[in-house]
Amino acid sequence: MSIVQTHNLTKKFGKFTALDQVNLHVDEGEVYGFIGPNGSGKSTMIRLLLGMIKATKGEATIFGMDAWKDAVDIHKRIAYVPGDVNLWPNLTGGEVIDLFMKLRGAGNKNRREEMIEKFKLDPSKKCRNYSKGNRQKVALVAAFASDADLYILDEPTSGLDPLMERVFQECVLDAKKDGKSILLSSHILSEVEKLCDRVGIISEGKMIETGTLSELRHLTRTNLLVETKLKVIGLQELRGISSIKETGQVLSFQVDAEELDMVIKYVSQFGIVRLESAPPTLEDLFISHYEVKPNVKTVI
């Protein structure tokens, strides 16, 4: 069942189109990774889903309800953490967490203490004295201490240290284990790789790729490292090969997925001593989409 569903969602700010007919769905119990360069429309998407801005065209539903009209009802079952958390300078972190829990209605006192402990937050400090990371912890504690069905997290770890990042990842996986759904927008691709079941890549307001990580990988190149008995010749003439690097008898290069079979057959003629293959990282994926963009533009 889809928890979040958008249909041709479009948002224009004056003449500028921030989101262009985006279709996205997040299923129950799924962690959905939402990635894209700065200014690509990630935050606009999230603010549309939260009913803070109104779609120009198309529709967005959460739990089957309209994201704009039924915002209040939807929010009873949502926890949101923004990337840039600004709190009220003259209140303590503990006060803010309590307010947040009270506003949602449901909440668990024990979970609150547990999360404060986990994230090593000092709740007695005034918010004006918190660093960026600590302000983010306040929002994260309030979010994970709540009993939400959907977590919307907009670059939630941008201020956390690696240790806290790990705590955060545990919390996400725990929530997933409990059957919750998570929409995670992030820049940290290793984090998305670790946590997400499915990924959507957005660029210039358009959803350019979506699917499971392995589906996406299929679309791109595999990294190969080959050591052969004889020197490989004529490799650059083959189709679908790029970034060839040669160090003595060891060759490393990237191969398009559909040419893989043909390339392996060709290379094996030279007597393979060692063969290592690595799946493309999300970074490769991301960059390959990013680089393609100018060509796409000229076609259109």
Binding site: G51, H75, Y80, P82, D84
Partner: peptide, 13 residues
């Protein structure tokens, strides 16, 4: 951004 934080709760517009 504080209003955004509050608005993400079941709070009226």
């Amino acid at each position: 951004g504080q209003v955004e934080l509050i608005q993400a709760f079941p709070v009226g517009r």
